[in-house]
Amino acid sequence: MAIEVLIFYLLAGVAIAAAAGVVLARNPVHSAVSLVLSFVNVAAIYVMLRAEFLAVAQVIVYTGAIIVLVLFVLMLVQQQDLPEFHGGRPLRRAVGFLLGLVLLAEVAAAILTRSLRGAPGSWPPEAVAAVGGNIQAIGRELYSVYMLPIQATALLLLAATVGALFLARPELIEERLAVARRLFTISLAHPRGVDPLQPVAELPGPHDNERKPAGGDRVLVMARNAEEFTEQPAWGEIRR
């Protein structure tokens, strides 16, 4: 028995230390890594509580996807853009502190009302064993009692995805590209800042040369004589 308690303290200690690291680290990437460490330790605690599914879900969803995305963003942020380098934001700090307190109170209330008084949940171990394990138990609960919240969450996430796509819609990228193209410079042959090329006058159409299929739905025009040493393209329409 003692060994399990020891392992629990080890995991809990590392989880708390890592959680402290999240707040204390100066570098946001280090914060994210600490958060991963904390999550993994919490997942291990879940395993000790025989909640394997929860543990694995925690690792896949939180550490495997969400924090990866957070890191994705953090890697692109430059240190000097962070608010700490501009004196911080006092209002946000205050609000954050308050929200933290509220969260702490909530968690404390939940623990005090349930566990300490020893009130049993709706799924005692015997009931879990009766349906064949905790995966089955979670499945039953989620898709019967909590069906409506699940559907609502799914809808919310879908809306969020569509919203994100809208915010990052490609037209904006096109606009930015157009700005860049206007200022597009070539160092080799063109004077800087000059729009490089104006299309020359309309060119005559293709010639009746032999056409040879060349693969990939393409044909090659096989020009045989020099008489049409020309500036005539072998294709009709201009692309791009």
Binding site: V40, E52, F53, V56, V59, I60, T63, G64, A65
Partner: peptide
């Protein structure tokens, strides 16, 4: 799922 979790880590 454990295999997937390890892979994602």
């Amino acid at each position: 799922l454990y295999f997937l979790a390890v892979g994602s880590m």
